[in-house]
């Protein structure tokens, strides 16, 4: 039945359009005082989810002040990217934990 098939196709197209194609969630692990991946790429509108696997609290703190996310021990937290650019971030408690986010427009 071509009629029903095209209705389904139209619905699929509609759903695909309603959810912006580029909105993704990017996971970054914090384990043994290392962030991985250390260099991550994302786009404006994407969500970064930091997952802290340590028994220590960490933060993801942007050097340019764009974000300062608290990660209690064994917890995760998210941040939605609003601005493009290359952002270096670190942990305020353990400044030897460093990583970079490349955010495309």
């Amino acid at each position: 039945m071509p009629g029903r098939l095209s209705t389904i196709a139209a619905a699929v197209v509609f759903v695909a359009m309603a959810v912006p194609a580029h909105a993704a969630t990017i996971q970054i692990m914090m384990e043994n005082l290392e962030m991985s991946p250390k260099d991550a790429s994302a786009k404006v509108g994407d969500t970064i989810e930091w997952i802290n696997k340590d028994v220590f609290a960490h933060t993801a703190t942007a050097r340019n002040g764009d974000f300062d996310v608290n990660l209690p021990a064994k917890k995760s937290a998210t941040f939605v990217l609003k601005k493009a650019g290359t952002v270096d971030y670190y942990c305020r408690y353990h400044p030897n934990m460093k990583a970079t986010l490349k955010i495309e427009p």
């Binding site: 043994n32 005082l33 220590f56 942990c91 305020r92 408690y93 353990h94 400044p95 030897n96």
Partner: peptide, 16 residues
């Protein structure tokens, strides 16, 4: 080794 990374972090934090 984990302790060393924690302590190195604390040293930098203390310096700040």
């Amino acid at each position: 080794q984990t302790g060393l990374k924690i302590f190195q972090g604390h040293q930098q934090h203390a310096e700040h």
